[in-house]
Amino acid sequence: MLLTDPAFIRRLESLYLLARKVLGGTLRADRKSTRKGAGISFADYSEYSIGDDHRAIDWRVYARLDSLMIKLFELEEDIIMYFLLDSSKSMDSKFLYARQLVAALAYIALHSMDKVVIYGMAEELIVVTKPTLGRGKTLGVLQNLEVAKPFGVGTDFATAARQLCRWHKKKGMVIAVSDFFFPGGFEDGLKFLQWNNHDLFCIQVQDSEDRKCRLKGDVELQCIESGELRQLTITNSEARAYEQAVIDWNDRLSEFCATQGIGLVSTTTDVPFDRIIQSILRRGGLVS
């Protein structure tokens, strides 16, 4: 299915309507800024100090208490959503599914007036969509996603994370969509992003072939990314060992995210993407 197909866009619209109903139209429902500043919603009082805006002084309080107090309002700031779309070769079979997920989340974000940036991620980051804001840019974003292709030999998540932080000083919501089969591990990259005050949400996309070994007998295994070859006779014990290794790897990701307060959704390509988005929305958005 094309990402710019009207039928697909109608499915995205449905998801956005669900987002409005459930989360008030924004993916960051629980993520209102804790900083105080100019806004319209009263938040708190604070003692006046030199340099504060005189317009914020509450004179009624001064008349009653004889001290200068200023009104604080919730700071309303637009959030940037950074999408890291794993575009390595290992995502070949899952790339469409991953792009559908990114498209859905980006659609909701754009309609919620959030800024969206989408990067393709392999050994480095490649821009898929530059920082974009507003509903009018939705079709362009979808077109960019539609033409995106896997690239690179391997995935270096830590390097990609550093690259993102170098390019974007402003903190935001980083959404990594990947199978998380990173030979160098995922911990360094995620920690680095957290250290740079980004909120993180991981969507792990795998297919059934990743989790279940259906190979038997003599095979020559080839790494889809590096092209490395290795001959092996796969019996039931080898198949079980591989499947256990995948389970252990996924458990490692789950435990890491849970301990670090990172949101995580794991899915396979068998599950329709909109069901995953609905699940995220019903859980309260992109939260841990």
Binding site: S90, E225, Q231, A245
Partner: peptide, 27 residues
């Protein structure tokens, strides 16, 4: 030669290779 099969998590297969170090010789 046996059939060539591309795999996504090759680094996880390495753990299986390590458990069967003598595979090549025995093959």
């Amino acid at each position: 030669r046996p059939g060539r099969k591309p795999v996504t998590a090759f680094f996880l297969w390495r753990e299986v290779f390590d458990q069967k170090k003598n595979t090549a010789l025995s093959n």
